[in-house]
Write a protein that binds this DNA or RNA. Sequence first.
DNA 1: CGCTAATCTAGAACAAGTTTCAGACTTGAT
DNA 2: ATCAAGTCTGAAACTTGTTCTAGATTAGCG
Lengths: 225, 225
Amino acid sequence: MTKVTGAERADRAERAGRAERPGRADTAAAVDARPAALPLTERQEARRRRILDASTRLAGGGGFDAVQMREVAEVSGVALGTLYRYFPSKIHLLVAMMQDQLEELHGTLRRDPPGGGTPAQRVTRTLMRAFRALQREPLLADAMVRALIFADRGVSAEVDRVSRRTTAIILDATGLADPTPAQLSAVRVIEHTWHSALITWLSGRASIARVRADIETACRLIDLT
Amino acid sequence: MTKVTGAERADRAERAGRAERPGRADTAAAVDARPAALPLTERQEARRRRILDASTRLAGGGGFDAVQMREVAEVSGVALGTLYRYFPSKIHLLVAMMQDQLEELHGTLRRDPPGGGTPAQRVTRTLMRAFRALQREPLLADAMVRALIFADRGVSAEVDRVSRRTTAIILDATGLADPTPAQLSAVRVIEHTWHSALITWLSGRASIARVRADIETACRLIDLT
DNA sequence: CGCTAATCTAGAACAAGTTTCAGACTTGAT
DNA sequence: ATCAAGTCTGAAACTTGTTCTAGATTAGCG
């Protein structure tokens, strides 16, 4: 799928290591571990947003396969080359989309956090709430989740960002101020379950009830530490 | 990636619904829900095996991306069209590969089942044993696991088969004769964790120690029911 | 053995992700 | 305002998964 011709492999990985936003060309072999947020001009910010919006729309209409790079470029009024400068691969694009959505969700949750019950119950409630949101746009969810788990090393940094945000959301829900390693592991298991169960639902192999049951089961781990 | 042009979509899904082995053309709109195992001639069986072996070799050498359909066809001495008749997509091929490996693993485990300790400990030990096997061929694991989780509805049947086998392996390890729904849910959470944790390790985002910790955490659920 | 349907082969063709390139455009610093 | 560096555009090219076709081969059957 991903055009990788032997020697280019290294290049590719290297480039993808940073990237996510258009970068200055490598004027110097700078040691910048991660510019974090290269300042984007207003127009660039707008372009980036147009791209993300366009792909969100396309994904919502037809899932992973409907997000076609040429079309994203066209719809967002940007040249194909430019699209690739902002997002070095389709996977990067979709993962960025997920990050975007997660941030929105996190904001909503912060304004209206789940109260009452045990930590496990709060996490379950939070995740089921997120799940209901996804159910409204299953194809969008499909595109994002499939991209997220299919991502290879070249997208590690971005996937990691998504993962950290997800962890934060779950931890927030637990209300745990200073989680132990065991609790962190439990959170990761919940996260694994969340992604994987979502996939089984999206590909029609599990019912909603089953997803809920599995999430509840995994969440139980939180109270056991 | 997957060439799907509007109208063909339906076709594709329909076709993929069965298929996994070369099928007689639809001479009659037979109601055969699932021929399960169309009799293959000896030469066909041999071809199928050559194909699986070739892709296993290729995957072991370079992971998911290294399994290129043209090359699989060439290495296994079969025309491209034939390859596609046996495995209707690259994902089908890789999932079949996984099924193959799983069956081998299951056989090994049956001959030498994990004894002693609690059910959770036995499951942990079993999975860590499988994990060690995968560590020996990380690229092979990469190809199989990525295909498995990336698979869409069209591959449901095959993925389901793999999933059932995995469940069987875990249940065998528990030693539970007649698992309750809660226990089955726990097994699924373990399975989710297994796949997802594997992915994070394969894409370099988690250490082996962490994978182990998460698997142990998930396995704990088995003893709590 | 001789037929017919099914299968296989070689190779072209097509789709979508990705790369490349020449030229027009912006931006930032002077 | 001007120039160099960095961006963006449009279009073509390349790679790899997938489909299609026409002609050989093979398998099963009478």
